[in-house]
Design a protein around this nucleic acid. Structure first.
Lengths: 200, 200
DNA sequence: CCCGACCGACCGACTGGTCGGTATGATGAA
DNA sequence: TTCATCATACCGACCAGTCGGTCGGTCGGG
């Protein structure tokens, strides 16, 4: 089905690069246009506004990440293993794509209040993915009952911050190095006893 | 000892309100001026630029929070108790000052990349506060050895996200309700066995 | 000859920062 | 006491650059 990328896709690719580098406000539509083989009018034929273009890019990236997580999760049946592999997937995926990480985790905010809704949407989505598996783990009896709603956000926040620190300071290099600690602390936090882990 | 607040302070107060409400980029200097009994020229006599004004406000708030934490921490000697009370103080302080929380945690992002440095600075400060006490706890033997560098950022991220979720969705109301869960999960994560906690 | 896709010069709203000017009070010489 | 002088604090109309978005027009295929 895929021939040459559609104009829409080409625009989004260019937008992704510039938005990630400069953030929302410091990005001029003219710059995105410059990176495209298209004119401003042409771009505006495909996207009605800067805001919508930005959202489209964010959605796209969010979807890709979510898909990757879901794919990796699907290979495991027990909840704890799923949680572990989800953490791994996020750290690996974003760890090897600095630009995407920055856009997804940081630049999104740069819109100001208009972004509030999207940010809730995006983060909640990943939080509920975690929540589902925490709930499952509780049902399975692998971990004691907890407030999975809050804990899932706690996890998202924890991972988010570790990634942001890496984005800004470069430490740890590579981020993946933080994975064992992250797993150990988060899992122990919900009551999983230490054990020999499977993946590095 | 309180006379009339200095012009500088009056400007910062006005700025705080507007920045918190609209975020950096969507705030016009003219609006801050409007909220002051001062003219634009007068404002620019005290602050050289919008950016500097914003940073001044952020620093001020950061300091206040840090002071409050330090004061509460000083009352405890054992490291675990300090960590607990630090968590409590943050949740309470920001929980009862939504506006400040929003400004401190969210609104800076709309500055774009200029905010990077300040964000590292601010978050690292709180992270190392946590790190110090985690290190202490390890020394004391209250918890097993861990990578306190990463874990401290994990904590900051966790608390940050819980607060942001509250800012955006209002849940839990009040945020303080998340405190027991936060304490329990984070402390258990670093290896503190469950016990009867003192504070609610 | 119509229409979707695209072009790019242009518009106008907005905003950070400036600058010539003013009010007030301190200083100090006559 | 008085008045010239000067610095500080403050005023607000104005400017110049920026940028999202528009619109009249082009063009090729069906």
């Amino acid at each position: 089905m895929k021939t040459r990328p559609t104009a829409r896709d080409r625009i989004m690719e260019a937008a992704e690069v510039v938005f990630a580098e400069k953030g929302y406000h410091d990005t001029a539509m003219d710059e995105i246009v410059r990176r495209t083989d298209m004119s401003k009018g042409g771009l505006y034929f495909h996207f009605p506004s800067k805001e919508r273009l930005f959202f489209a890019v964010m959605d796209h990236l969010g979807n890709r990440l979510a898909e990757r997580i879901n794919a990796s999760i699907a290979q495991e049946s027990d909840a704890i293993a799923r949680l572990e592999i989800a953490l791994t997937t996020v750290l690996e995926s974003l760890g090897k794509r600095r630009r995407l990480a920055k856009l997804l985790l940081v630049q999104g905010y740069s819109m100001g209040n208009a972004f509030e809704k999207k940010r809730i949407e995006t983060y909640s989505r990943f939080a509920s993915l975690i929540k589902d598996n925490l709930d499952l783990a509780v049902e399975e009896g692998s971990i004691p009952p907890i407030d999975t709603e809050i804990v899932s956000h706690l996890w998202v926040g924890a991972v988010n911050e570790v990634l942001i620190r890496w984005l800004y300071t470069g430490k740890p290099a590579p981020v993946k190095e933080a994975l064992p600690v992250l797993k150990k602390i988060l899992l122990r936090g919900v009551g999983v006893e230490a054990k020999v882990s499977i993946g590095g």
